[in-house]
Amino acid sequence: MDKYSQIILLGIAAGIVARVFMLRNDYRSYPSYPHGYVTHISLGIIAAALGSIAIPALLEKEFTAVTFLVLAAQQFRDIRNMERETLSKLENYNMVPRGFDYIEGIAKTFEARNYLVMLVSLVSSGTAVFFNIWIGIFAGLFTIFISGFLMRGDFVKDIAIVKIGELHFERSLLMVDNIVIMNVGLEDSKKRILKEGLGLIIHPKNDNARATLNNLGQRQAILHDVSVLVGSKLETGEPDWTPLMRKDIDTGKLALYILPNEKDVECVIQAVYQTPILESAVQKPLESKIGRKAAD
């Protein structure tokens, strides 16, 4: 076998393992269909191939080969557009939409995962060239682990505490504790909301969390995930059951109202905790001097 064949094969294999590892089929159910898998694994293979030939190509003084990486970057940027377009089109028929921030986050993740695959392949083939194949395997696995760890991102449980709130009406205003959610006109709807609805209060842990949760895209992501995980009774043409989140303008805490399929408080709280924090929503006023001063 040619001296680089084994190394390139190793790089490709490491890249594919990384892509499969990152292609977790989670509750966001995307991509949950076989064709989605095929698309992403195929692109993953291309990324892995590109990553693993880079270093052997350089060593052979084939500098033009490296320029293909530039082409690849362009190619993978299209993945983001593809994901964005698909998800945006599906959005119209989503009972509780994901929101554009969530879609952008998913699209960005899919693009980034291909770069990570390239990195894994590059590291494993590179170390295999300079040391030996076993160290290459180890380095590949280590990079997969590290990239998984670094790409984890935060969840609502990291920045907020969720407690049950009291759902009640003040005349026609639906409220969770002291936060107004909406005006409900129909008496039958009111009775049903009091009987089957749930109200939660989300307390941000600090001013950074407060600013992040203030983002409407982040709130929509929470509502979407909760509706997917515990189910919502929302039906088209019956807006009284729309899950909503509103803010207490004085303290920054958020009230969440939902009419879940099963009135299981613990599950709904866990569903909120498991919602990812969107990259586009993250704000860190406490990192600045002014923010810190304003916070005290």
Partner: peptide, 14 residues
């Protein structure tokens, strides 16, 4: 109001 809200797919406010 209930009938109108269902027909118009809209919300009733009091």
């Amino acid at each position: 109001a209930l009938l109108l809200s269902r027909i118009l797919k809209a919300m009733v406010h009091n």
